Structures are given as C-alpha cells and as structure tokens.
Simulated scan of single mutants.
Amino acid sequence: MGSASGVENISYDYSFKILLIGDSGVGKSSLLLSFISNSVHDISPTIGVDFKVKLLTVGGKRLKLTIWDTAGQERFGTVISSYYRGAHGIILVYDVTRRETFTNLVNMWAKEVELYSTNHECIKILVGNKVDKDGERVVNKEEGMALAQEHKCLFLECSAKTRENVQQCFNDLSLKILEVPSLREKGSGMVKKHTMRQKHIYGTTQNGGCCSQ
C-alpha cells in the first residue's frame, strides 16, 4: 500500500492500468523500480502480484499509472483473467541474452494476452531488456522489431540497469493509449469512480458522519 501513498490527494486527468508480463528473470521488477525510482539495487523476486503507482505528465495530460508486475506467478502460468481485466497497456518483456524468453513471448504470453485481455484495443509494447549486456546478446534488434510488427506492438530495447529507454518505454505507451478514444474514455471513467469513492469516504468520516446524511 505504501506505493500509493500521496497519490490519493493529487488530481489527474486519466488513470491507466499497465501490465508487465514475460518470463521470470527478464527484469520486469527492475524495469518497474527503475521507472519508479532511481535505484535498481537489492531486488528480491516478487511473490504473487505486485503493483506500483506512478504519476506522469505526458502530452500535457496528468496520468496516474498503476503498473502491475506478475513476478512469482509466471512460471506456473497462473496469471489469471482478473490480472488482465481492464488493462489499458501491456509491456511484454524479454531478455536479449536469453532466446527462450523471446520465443516464449510468442508461444505463451501473446496467446494469454489474446485470451484474457478485456480491452481489445489495449496498447502493447515489446521490450528487449538488458541491452547493457551487449556482448552476451543472442536476440538482435531486427528480430525484435519484426515480432513487434507482426503482433502490432510498439517496440523498444532498454536497460533497467543503466535506465536507458526506461522512461521512454512508459512515455511511448502512455502517449499511444491517449490516442485511442475508447481507452481514454475508460481511463477517464476510472478517475471519476475514484473521485466518487473519495467523496463517499470523506463524507462518512467527518464530524461523526453527519455529512453523509
């Protein structure tokens, strides 16, 4: 809950749900922490589903991104439909030094997105992580670009370690989401729902509840 503190009282134009998916160890948690803070040290594997909240201004709009990380679930293939429900954007991550993480995106993750995603216009971005290990690279940039094109995804290579292109990844995704009217509308609806909930909470707690009458 600590990651959301301070966000409650700040106004924003849209609220978007973003998912990070891909094999264990590709650097999903590192990407998330690199984006949220300036440090990627001391990362232990996440158990279950973790999420972080980040406020971002893109294209002149204030966005609240709730970014969900599947870490700990992926090896069981148990990332269920509730995780995908209502996602506005999906970040598919592979490790450029491990080919199986790249092929699994096609064989497993892309199929799961297709199966469970409820927003059919949701924006997807394919991300090749760990480009700082260029000497160990086994998946070249052209292969990544070709796969992204085939699945109608955006594409970017980045490094959570050096922070190269990490901010760019979330910026590009957010801008693209804002271009889709149906996603924009749903993101706006989430803000309205949040505002109504806040009024209800504050209304029933002030002055012994007299405001709620």
Rank of each mutant, 00 (worst) to 15 (best):
residue 179 E to N: 08
residue 102 F to A: 07
residue 155 F to S: 11
residue 132 D to V: 02
residue 169 C to T: 15
residue 161 K to F: 12
residue 166 V to F: 08
residue 125 I to N: 02
residue 146 A to S: 14
residue 157 E to S: 10
residue 122 C to S: 15
residue 113 V to F: 02
residue 178 L to G: 02
residue 132 D to C: 03
residue 95 D to N: 05
residue 114 E to C: 11
residue 155 F to D: 09
residue 116 Y to T: 09
residue 121 E to L: 13
residue 162 T to N: 04
residue 97 T to W: 09
residue 131 V to E: 05
residue 117 S to G: 13
residue 108 M to I: 14
residue 104 N to T: 05
residue 121 E to T: 14
residue 142 E to G: 13
residue 118 T to S: 14
residue 173 L to F: 02
residue 137 R to V: 06
residue 123 I to E: 02
residue 178 L to A: 05
residue 97 T to Y: 10
residue 96 V to M: 00
residue 95 D to M: 05
residue 179 E to V: 09
residue 131 V to H: 01
residue 101 T to P: 05
residue 179 E to P: 04
residue 111 K to E: 06
residue 145 M to R: 11
residue 170 F to S: 05
residue 111 K to F: 01
residue 114 E to N: 15
residue 163 R to E: 13
residue 144 G to W: 03
residue 162 T to Q: 04
residue 131 V to I: 15
residue 102 F to K: 07
residue 105 L to R: 06
residue 138 V to Q: 00
residue 162 T to A: 02
residue 115 L to K: 15
residue 174 S to V: 01
residue 143 E to N: 06
residue 181 P to R: 07
residue 164 E to I: 11
residue 177 I to F: 08
residue 103 T to I: 14
residue 131 V to Q: 05
residue 118 T to M: 09
residue 155 F to N: 10
residue 148 A to E: 03
residue 117 S to Q: 09
residue 116 Y to K: 14
residue 179 E to G: 03
residue 108 M to D: 09
residue 98 R to I: 11
residue 144 G to Y: 00
residue 150 E to R: 14
residue 179 E to I: 07
residue 165 N to H: 15
residue 157 E to C: 12
residue 106 V to S: 08
residue 165 N to R: 12
residue 169 C to H: 01
residue 176 K to E: 13
residue 114 E to K: 15
residue 124 K to C: 09
residue 97 T to V: 12
residue 170 F to T: 04
residue 148 A to R: 08
residue 100 E to S: 12
residue 124 K to V: 07
residue 170 F to N: 04
residue 149 Q to A: 15
residue 125 I to A: 03
residue 104 N to A: 09
residue 163 R to K: 15
residue 114 E to V: 09
residue 125 I to H: 00
residue 139 V to H: 07
residue 128 G to F: 02
residue 165 N to Q: 13
residue 129 N to E: 01
residue 97 T to H: 08
residue 126 L to E: 07
residue 123 I to A: 01
residue 179 E to D: 13
residue 134 D to Q: 11
residue 182 S to T: 14
residue 139 V to G: 03
residue 144 G to D: 05
residue 104 N to E: 07
residue 140 N to A: 11
residue 162 T to W: 04
residue 146 A to D: 13
residue 153 C to D: 01
residue 99 R to K: 14
residue 133 K to L: 15
residue 95 D to A: 04
residue 110 A to D: 07
residue 156 L to I: 15
residue 120 H to Y: 11
residue 160 A to V: 07
residue 105 L to N: 04
